[in-house]
């Protein structure tokens, strides 16, 4: 092996030293990146079936607030471990469970039984009692949790913050093409 004339022994060692450090840095980057990305790379999901309480807490024909404790929480999370949802009981066995979050920017919507509307205090998004978009800036209806009834209790599958792109069950989607608000 012939070395180029202008490469001294020391200069080569400097280059080798930089290369050596580069390799070590690349090796160390693997656990660091893995650690930083850990919230998104974990294989088991965040969601679980969570109890909302006995069925008789939710009278038929009414929409009531439900509270659940999220499955993936830490001891120091305090009250933030809990979330609310709106439970609409249509009849004995039919429910709709809506996320509390407006599908515009996530503010908590409030239920007005008199007018049968959910209203958002932030930017004025409004939804009908079935969660469909009524007016305002949201581009879709409220997010709906899957639910099931077991042993007289209502369960929902939850655990992840719903955002405007969270896929909801199909009935919650509304087509707004052709009736865009002129606000």
């Amino acid at each position: 092996m012939t070395l180029p004339d202008n490469l001294s022994r020391r200069a080569m060692f400097v280059k080798l030293g930089i290369l050596f450090n580069g390799i070590i840095a690349a090796l160390l980057a693997i656990p660091i990146v893995r650690y930083v990305l850990s919230p998104v790379t974990r294989s088991r999901g965040y969601e679980a079936w969570l109890p909302l309480g006995a069925l008789d807490q939710f009278p038929a024909g009414q929409t009531r607030l439900g509270t659940f404790r999220n499955p993936d929480v830490q001891p120091w999370d305090g009250k933030t471990a809990y979330s609310d949802c709106w439970v609409r009981r249509i009849d004995d066995h039919t429910f709709q469970v809506f996320a509390i979050n407006c599908m515009h920017l996530g503010c908590p919507v409030r239920w007005f039984p008199q007018s049968g509307l959910f209203m958002c205090p932030c930017h004025g998004g409004v939804y009908y009692q079935d969660g469909a978009r009524a007016s305002g800036p949201p581009e879709r209806g409220l997010f709906e949790y899957p639910y099931k009834i077991e042993e007289g209790k209502l369960f929902i599958k939850a655990g992840q913050l719903p955002t405007p792109v969270s896929p909801s069950i199909p009935s919650a989607f509304v087509d707004i093409s052709g009736k865009l608000p002129c606000a």
């Binding site: 919230p39 965040y46 999220n70 933030t80 979330s83």
Partner: peptide
Amino acid sequence: SRIPIVGPWMVTLLLGGPIIAG
């Protein structure tokens, strides 16, 4: 979440988990 394709992952990274908490 509105960022195309990676939106949901960005949310989880931003929040450090599935919900706004500790």
